[in-house]
Design a binder for these strands. Structure first.
Length: 825
RNA sequence: GCGGUGGUGGUGGAACGGUAGACACGCCAGCUUGAGGGGCUGGUGCCCGCAAGGGUGUGGGGGUUCAAAUCCCCCCCACCGCACCA
C-alpha cells in the first residue's frame, strides 16, 4: 500500500466510488429530522473558478457536517442556464447558445465532482431544459389568470449594449448591472409581475427570516421602501382637483407652492390654449434630454417652470402657484407634491432658486426659525405654528392628528407608498423562456392553453442574432417560422410574443423542482415539496440581496396563495459567503483575473484547496486570492494534510492490546481530544470552519508531542485518529475516507456519526488563574478548576509579584472563579 | 445626504466585558544525508534589559468599569447599499 500521500490516487479512487453509487442521493420523503441545504444554482459561464470553489467548499462542509450529525440531508445542484452570455457567444463567435451552455455545464459538473461536492447527482436540473422552462410558462399563465402578470406600456430601463429592458433591480446607479452601460429610458410595452401587491407581506414576513443578517434585511427593507403618510386633495382653480402624497401632512400650513412632474398628464391640460403651452413642451424636451443619472442627481440644480395656474391649499384655502419641476418624479406617489420649503430640503432649494415664498410651520424647541434667512430645511422635532387650530401640536403626534382630521373633513386620507416597483419580466433576448402568449388581430392578447406547453425555442440556426434589434425587438422576431402561430381562440394566423422571461423567474422556484425533478404533470408535487421545504440552510452571494432574494420570496408567497406551498418564507437561514477577489477586484471574465482550480487540483488536490479556502477566514469574509497564487496552498494546507497523513500511517499498526493501561500522558491526550471534540462541534455548528481547523491543528500538534516524549498507547492513538478523521471529513473528504478505510472499515466515513465527547473527560480540572492588580495582569498560576474564592484570594495575596504592586491590603477584591481574581490597590 | 459594515503583528486571521495576537503563513535558531516545492523541535507584537523583569500596545480622542479590541460619545479612514421616493 502507498505510504506517501498521493492525493491524485486517493481522489480518483473515492470520486469514482461516491459518484458510481450516488452516495449522496436523498429520498423523496425524509425519514427522521431533515436538513435541506441548497446553494444558489450557478450560471454556467465557463469552467469552475475560485468563486465557485469558495462557495462549494463552504456549502459542502455544511452538508457533510449535517449528515454526520444524523440529519437526513437533501443537497441538490443544478444550473441557472438561460441568460445573456450564451447569447453573446452566439453573436460574437457564431456559437449555438445551447451547445455553449451545455458544454459549460458538463465542465462545471465534472469540476464540482472533482472538488468532492456531495450533491445528489440524480436531481440535477438546468433551467434551459424544456422540461424545466415548461413550468416557467405554466407559472406565467397561472400568474396571468390571477391578474399578477400584465402587459403595460411604460418608460422602461433600456440597456443599449445588451439591447434589452432591465428590471429596476438590475439597474445600479443608472447603469446596467451586468455590463455597466448607461441605462436609458425607453417607452415600451412590457410584461410585469405584480410584486407590489405583495410589498407589505414581503416586509412583514421579514421577521420569519431569523437566520438572515441585519445587513441583508436592511437592504431589502430599504429596497421595498415603505413609507406612511397621507394623500391630500388640492382643488385647482378652473380645473379638476389633484391628489398629492406626503409623509408630512402636518406641514400643510407651510405649503407655499405646488409641483408636478413634467410628464404629469394634467400639466399639459392646465396649459392647453395658454401662452405656456409651448413653453411646457420645450421644458419637457429639455428634461427628456437628461440622462436618468443626471435627472436624479441630488447635486444638480433643480429646474422648473410656472404653469400660470393656481391650486387651493385645502387646510387654509390659500391660493398657491402650480409649477412643474424635474425633481418631482412621475412614478412615485401621485407624481405631484405640495412644496413646503421650510421643512423639505429639495423644496427649499427650489424655492430659493426661483424666489418662492417660505413659511415656517414647525418651530424647534427653544429656537426660532426665520423663513427669510433659513438656509436649511428644518425636519427635527418641535411644535406646529401658523397652523390654525393645530398650533402647539407636537411633531411626534402631529402626522396622525392632522391626517385623522383631513379624513374626517373629506380632504384627504391615510396612505402609504412603496419604493418597490412591479417586476419587469420581459427581455428582448433569445436564450430564455418564451412567453406563452399569442397576439391575434381579432382576439387580442391570448394565453396559450396549458396543454400546448412547453412552447419550445426555435433552433438558433433559424434566428438572426445580428439583426438590428435597436428598436427593441427580440431576435426571436426573426424566426419567421416560429413567430407565426394559430390563435388559440379563433385559429386564425397570429403572432407569438417574441420577448422571453427574465431568468430570475427560473430561479424563483427552482428549489421546489429539485424535490421532484422529473415530474411531467406539474412543476412539482406538493407533498414532496412540503416534505423538504423550507430550505434549512441556503448559501449564496450577497449580490442577490434585492434581486433573486426578493423575487423568490414573492414567488413563494404566490405559491402559498395558489395552494402549492406551506411556508411563507423559502429560506429562513441564509449564509452569504464572501467574494473571492484578486488584487481587490472581483474575479470576472472581463477583467481577466479568473483563477481556475485545475492547477491546484493537480498540484495539491481538492482536499488541500478546500482546506485552504476554509482556513483563510470566516465564510462571510471576502477572500483576496494571493499574488503567489496556487503556491500558497502548499505550506498552508497541503503540508498539514501530509502531516495528518503521516500521523495516520505511522500510528495505525498496532491494533487491540486488550485492557487499557493509561499513564498520565495517555490521560492527558485523551482529555485534550475530548475537549477538542467539544469545541470543534460548536465551531462547526456556527460554520466557523477556520477556528475548527485551528483546533484540529492543535490536536495534531498534541499527538506529535505525545509521540515525541515517548507516548504510544495504540488504543489511545486509534481513538484520537478516529475522531480526528471524522472531524476532518467535511473539509477534506477524500483523505478522511482513504485513511478511514485503511483503518480497516469497509463502509464510508461519511455515513459515520459525528464523534461525541465524554463530558467528564472534556471538563477541565486544572485552569490558569490570572491575578490582576488595578486591572493589570501581575501573576498567573495553575489552580484546580473547583477552587473557592477564599482559596483564590489566599493564593493571590501570597504571590510576591502581586504583593510588589500592592501597598498593604487591597481595598477591594473581585473574584471570578476559577480563572480570574482582580485586586484594587 | 440617509442606512449599514469594518479598521487588531510583516501577512491571513483568533479573542462569552476577564492573560490581546489562538491557529497558520513568513522569519530566526537547533536537529534530521532528507534532497523534485521536505520532516521534527523551539522562538517570534513593539521598546528597554544578558536575564529576571518592566513599560507599551487593537485607526485617533474622551468616557463608563476593579477590568474595554469588545459598551457609550465625538472624530478620521475604508468599503457596501440607497439616493431629488416628497
Amino acid at each position: 500500500m502507498e505510504r506517501d500521500y498521493d492525493h491524485s490516487a486517493v481522489e480518483q479512487r473515492w470520486m469514482k466510488e461516491w459518484i458510481g453509487h450516488n452516495y449522496w442521493s436523498a429520498p423523496d420523503f425524509p425519514e427522521g429530522e431533515k436538513r435541506y441545504t441548497c446553494t444558489m444554482y450557478p450560471y454556467p459561464s465557463g469552467d469552475m473558478h475560485m468563486g465557485h470553489v469558495e462557495i462549494f467548499s463552504i456549502h459542502d462542509a455544511i452538508a457533510r457536517f449535517y449528515r454526520m450529525r444524523g440529519y437526513q440531508v437533501m443537497n441538490p445542484i443544478g444550473f441557472d442556464s438561460f441568460g445573456l452570455p450564451a447569447e453573446n457567444a452566439a453573436i460574437q463567435r457564431g456559437l449555438d447558445p445551447k451547445e455553449w451552455t451545455y458544454s459549460n455545464i458538463d465542465k462545471l459538473y465534472s469540476s464540482a465532482q472533482r472538488l468532492g461536492c456531495s450533491f445528489d447527482w440524480d436531481r440535477k436540473i438546468a433551467s434551459s431544459d424544456p422540461e424545466f422552462y415548461k413550468w416557467n410558462q405554466w407559472f406565467f399563465l397561472k400568474f396571468y389568470e390571477r391578474g399578477l402578470a400584465y402587459k403595460k406600456a411604460a418608460p422602461a430601463n433600456w440597456c443599449p449594449n445588451d439591447k434589452t429592458v432591465l428590471a429596476n433591480e438590475q439597474v445600479v446607479a443608472g447603469r446596467c448591472e451586468r455590463c455597466g452601460a448607461e441605462v436609458t429610458k425607453r417607452y415600451m410595452s412590457q410584461w410585469f409581475f405584480k410584486i407590489t401587491d405583495y410589498a407589505d407581506r414581503l416586509l412583514d414576513d421579514m421577521e420569519l427570516n431569523e437566520g438572515w443578517t441585519d445587513r441583508l434585511k436592511n437592504l431589502q427593507v430599504n429596497w421595498i421602501g415603505r413609507s406612511f403618510g397621507a394623500e391630500v386633495d388640492f382643488a385647482v382653480e378652473g380645473g379638476d382637483p389633484i391628489t398629492v402624497y406626503t409623509t408630512r401632512p402636518d406641514t400643510l400650513w407651510g405649503a407655499t407652492f405646488f409641483v408636478m412632474a413634467p410628464e404629469h398628464p394634467v400639466a399639459e391640460e392646465l396649459v392647453k390654449g395658454t401662452d405656456n403651452e409651448a413653453a411646457l413642451a420645450r421644458f419637457k424636451e429639455e428634461v427628456a434630454k437628461l440622462s436618468e443619472i443626471d435627472r436624479t442627481s441630488t447635486e444638480r440644480a433643480k429646474n422648473g417652470m410656472f404653469l400660470g395656474r393656481y391650486a387651493i391649499n385645502p387646510v387654509n384655502d390659500e391660493r398657491i402657484p402650480i409649477w412643474v419641476a424635474d425633481y418631482v418624479l412621475m412614478d412615485y406617489g401621485t407624481g405631484a407634491i405640495m412644496a413646503v420649503p421650510a421643512h423639505d430640503a429639495r423644496d427649499l432649494d427650489f424655492a430659493r432658486r426661483y424666489d418662492l415664498p417660505v413659511r415656517v410651520a414647525i418651530q424647534p424647541p427653544g429656537d426660532q426659525l426665520d423663513a427669510a434667512t433659513m438656509s436649511e430645511a428644518y425636519v427635527g422635532p418641535g411644535k406646529m405654528v401658523n397652523s390654525g387650530l393645530f398650533d402647539g401640536t407636537r411633531v411626534d403626534e402631529s402626522v396622525k392628528k392632522v391626517t385623522d382630521w383631513l379624513e374626517s373633513e373629506g380632504r384627504g386620507k391615510h396612505a402609504k407608498n412603496f419604493r418597490l416597483r412591479d417586476w419587469l419580466i420581459s427581455r428582448q433576448r433569445y436564450w430564455g423562456t418564451p412567453i406563452p402568449i399569442v397576439f391575434c388581430d381579432d382576439c387580442g392578447e391570448v394565453p396559450l392553453p396549458l396543454d400546448e406547453l412547453p412552447l419550445e425555442l426555435p433552433e438558433s440556426s433559424t434566428v438572426d442574432f445580428n439583426s438590428d434589434s435597436a428598436q427593441g425587438e427580440s431576435p426571436l422576431a426573426t424566426a419567421e417560422g416560429w413567430v407565426h402561430a394559430p390563435c388559440p381562440k379563433c385559429r386564425k394566423d397570429a403572432r407569438r410574443e417574441t420577448d422571453t422571461l427574465d431568468t430570475f423567474v427560473d430561479s424563483s422556484w427552482y428549489f421546489h423542482r429539485y424535490l421532484d425533478p422529473h415530474n411531467d404533470e406539474m412543476p412539482y408535487d406538493r407533498a414532496r415539496s412540503d416534505a423538504w421545504m423550507p430550505i434549512d440552510q441556503y448559501t449564496g452571494g450577497i449580490e442577490h440581496a434585492v434581486m433573486h432574494l426578493i423575487y423568490a420570496r414573492f414567488f413563494q408567497k404566490v405559491l402559498m396563495d395558489m395552494g402549492m406551498a406551506k411556508d411563507p418564507e423559502p429560506f429562513p437561514h441564509l449564509l452569504n459567503q464572501g467574494v473571492v477577489t484578486m488584487g481587490g477586484k472581483k474575479m470576472s471574465k472581463s477583467l481577466g483575473n479568473i483563477v481556475e482550480p485545475q492547477e491546484a487540483f493537480e498540484r495539491y488536490g481538492a482536499d488541500s484547496l478546500r482546506l485552504y479556502m476554509l482556513f483563510s477566514g470566516p465564510p462571510e469574509a471576502n477572500f483576496d486570492w494571493p499574488a503567489e497564487g496556487v503556491d500558497a496552498i502548499g505550506p498552508v494546507a497541503h503540508d498539514w494534510l501530509k502531516r495528518v497523513w503521516r500521523l495516520c500511517e505511522e500510528n495505525r499498526d498496532v491494533v487491540n492490546v486488550g485492557e487499557l493501561h493509561l499513564n498520565p500522558a495517555d490521560d492527558a491526550l485523551r482529555k485534550y481530544l475530548h475537549r477538542t471534540i467539544k469545541v470543534v462541534t460548536v465551531d462547526y455548528g456556527a460554520f466557523s470552519f477556520n477556528t475548527a481547523i485551528a483546533r484540529l491543528h492543535e490536536l495534531v500538534n498534541q499527538v506529535y508531542r505525545y509521540r515525541s516524549v515517548g507516548g504510544g498507547n495504540p488504543q489511545v492513538l486509534r481513538e484520537v485518529i478516529t475522531a480526528l478523521l471524522k472531524m476532518l471529513a467535511p473539509i477534506a473528504p477524500y483523505l478522511a475516507e482513504e485513511q478511514w478505510r485503511r483503518l480497516g472499515h469497509d463502509t464510508s466515513i461519511h455515513f459515520e456519526s459525528w464523534p461525541s465527547f465524554d463530558p467528564s473527560l472534556a471538563a477541565e480540572d486544572e485552569v490558569t488563574m490570572v491575578v490582576q492588580v488595578n486591572g493589570k495582569v501581575r501573576d498567573t498560576m495553575k489552580v484546580p478548576a473547583d477552587i473557592t474564592e477564599a482559596r483564590m484570594t489566599e493564593l493571590a495575596l501570597a504571590s510576591r509579584k502581586v504583593r510588589s504592586h500592592l501597598n498593604g491590603d487591597p481595598k477591594k477584591i473581585i473574584a471570578k472563579p476559577p480563572k480570574l481574581i482582580s485586586l484594587v490597590a
